[in-house]
Design a protein around this nucleic acid. Structure first.
Lengths: 357, 357
DNA sequence: CTGAAAGCGCTTACAG
DNA sequence: CTGAAAGCGCTTACAG
């Protein structure tokens, strides 16, 4: 025997019970045990009872590693996100998990906005043989693209709406989100407006935040607004402290700025706090808007005007789509699903008070 | 043959390459391919090169499902948290992932504070044969306890510091955190103080938040403070909106309250926003403190006084401990590791202004 | 409704 | 430094 089992002494070490142990105790074959666990209705009631008793008695927990190898179905779904510590992405993960249901297990990896890290993650995820992969964004290395295309499983790119996805996409246009922000600020009568985001640093880049900045810039150009400015500061991910620092820089450079779009609500919150520290009235003297419709922005006082995206809905939709594809349906659906965006004006944006007391 | 392979026609459907395919192409045995992938240094350089070329040419990605079954090592670690959408738990997950390194894959499940859901999660995680389990809290059903004890793998309970853990624990005392909060408010000279948290609703309960409330109540009793109040409102998880609602209720009941401890910084932030809406000066008229040292509280203006716990450090420590246990070390370490807490006074707490203008 | 045989794609435990 | 044999614990694909 290649692999020596414990000698058959009376005091054998207690080892995890296998299906074989259950089948012996119940006096049936392993196939019958397997059937009871997979679909009890196809086994005779009496046999089923005997098997269930043996399962309980031994505390048997089926080994899905072996089951997966044998059935060629792991019931894993891979999920690659920039970071878990962003409420939007956490919502997407939760939506995906809920839509997939209890029979699928999510394998989550986070890239910290590094394309190289994404490649490593994709490789190590594929080794677990997931049945589908959900990945944030459309910016991948050539090697990552090749691996994903050759994996032979559904791939869903999320948080963007490419016209030609790798396979499928569920998201919205970040460029349009930036445009909508600029148009909203202009519609209030503000002209000295700015957008704040992060800058690419080597391998680290927030491609979607950048697309929002570019959409914002495009409107400035279209409308001939020469008093606009795009400020890129620090590396992704952007959060509270980033927004505060970027706002400080912006106010130093353009003390007369009257409208600011931050590429995320977290960043907008930091900017709002900086305004408070400097005694700048929002929205009286300066209008501020964010992106993402974070719970934080809704509960803040004043509530932060934002561009709403359905973060949880992206996860839910991706999960539903995967289930359809697993079932061999969904071939007729469009490859790219755009869930859209919505401007949500709240307390931090207002028309300027031209004649302040 | 039980399982018919595709007939050996010229136009065979392209299927995922196996180690066998690589070995044939390289003209070696599968064992040699396996060795090159596991530890290249033990294979002759020339052979190694040939194998690597074959791997690249075929785009071979090893199947860890098969590898795990064969080696009896899945390199999975299970992690059970109440929710992912809480920055503290996201930090813990990140710390754990980093400490375990790239060779381990986290299997994350969230209970939404339901003990029944935890049982289901533990069962389904164990079926994936993780090599260790990290679980938030010490409140488990009898069935969950049994499964965890019989799993034959290290189990680390986190975010608490039980004197007799199931196996191991890494955390701190929530009761002491509540006591520290009460003592801090009393030390400022405040007497009409309150704590706000959630209440148990059926299967849904935040046992750790409740322990903090009880620590707070214990100090009230010890110090004979009869003007203190514990307000339990709504179901876990508590967040911004919960804090705002609880604060509103509290102010309606006790308009003269002068110090409030919220069981989380998220809740404290919501309470602070409610104060702002009601025009209540913090900390001038009312002192407010939270728990958890969220980034939000640090960046808020005024910054929120809090009880700091090392959320990421809990994950890191649990990960390091697991690696030691996997290596057969760590037996001499204490079963329960208390990382401690720290009162961090910031802008939302101050001694009362007895003679306000 | 039930079971015997074969195999999923790797690694272990030898042997040389 | 390399390989042939066996087996990890299940499910598939029959057959009865």
């Amino acid at each position: 025997m290649a692999r020596q089992k414990k000698a058959g002494l009376p005091a054998e070490a207690p080892t995890k019970p296998t299906m074989r142990d259950v089948s012996k105790l119940a006096g049936v074959s392993t196939m019958t045990v397997s059937r009871v666990l997979a679909d009890p209705s196809i086994v005779a009631p009496e046999t089923r009872e005997r098997v269930m008793r043996a399962v309980d008695q031994l505390g048997y927990v089926p080994d899905l590693v072996a089951g997966s190898l044998s059935s060629r179905r792991t019931n894993f779904v891979g999920l690659i996100l920039p970071t878990l510590t962003n409420s939007n992405f956490a919502d997407t993960a939760q939506g995906l998990a809920e839509a997939l249901g209890a029979s699928y297990q999510l394998l989550i990896g986070y890239t910290l906005y590094q394309a190289g890290e994404e490649e490593r993650l994709v490789r190590s995820l594929l080794a677990r043989r997931p049945q589908g992969i959900v990945v944030a964004g459309t910016l991948h290395t050539a090697s990552t693209r090749r691996m994903l295309m050759n994996a032979g499983i559904p791939v869903i790119e999320i948080w963007d709406a490419p016209s030609a996805p790798l396979d499928r996409a569920v998201g919205f246009s970040n460029f349009e989100a930036g445009r909508a922000a600029a148009r909203h600020l202009l519609s209030l009568g503000l002209r000295r407006i700015a957008a704040i985001g992060s800058e690419a640093e080597g391998d680290v880049r927030d491609a979607r935040g950048e697309a929002r900045l570019q959409g914002f810039a495009a409107v400035l150009k279209e409308e001939g607004v020469e008093t606009g400015v795009i400020l890129r500061h620090g590396a992704a991910p952007v959060s509270y402290a980033h927004g505060a620092a970027a706002m400080k820089l912006l106010l130093a450079e353009r003390p007369d700025v009257e409208g600011v779009f931050a590429v995320s609500d977290g960043s907008a919150f930091g900017a709002l706090m900086e305004c408070r520290r400097q005694g700048i009235d929002v929205p009286g003297r300066l209008s501020l808007m964010g992106f993402g419709d974070f719970e934080l922005g809704r509960e803040c006082e004043p509530a932060i005007s934002t561009i709403r995206v359905d973060a949880k809905g992206i996860g839910t939709k991706a999960g539903e789509l995967l289930r359809e594809l697993f079932d061999g349906r969904g071939a007729d659906l469009p490859p790219s699903i755009d869930l859209g965006i919505e401007v949500v004006p709240r307390g931090t944006t207002a028309a300027p008070r031209r004649h302040a007391p």
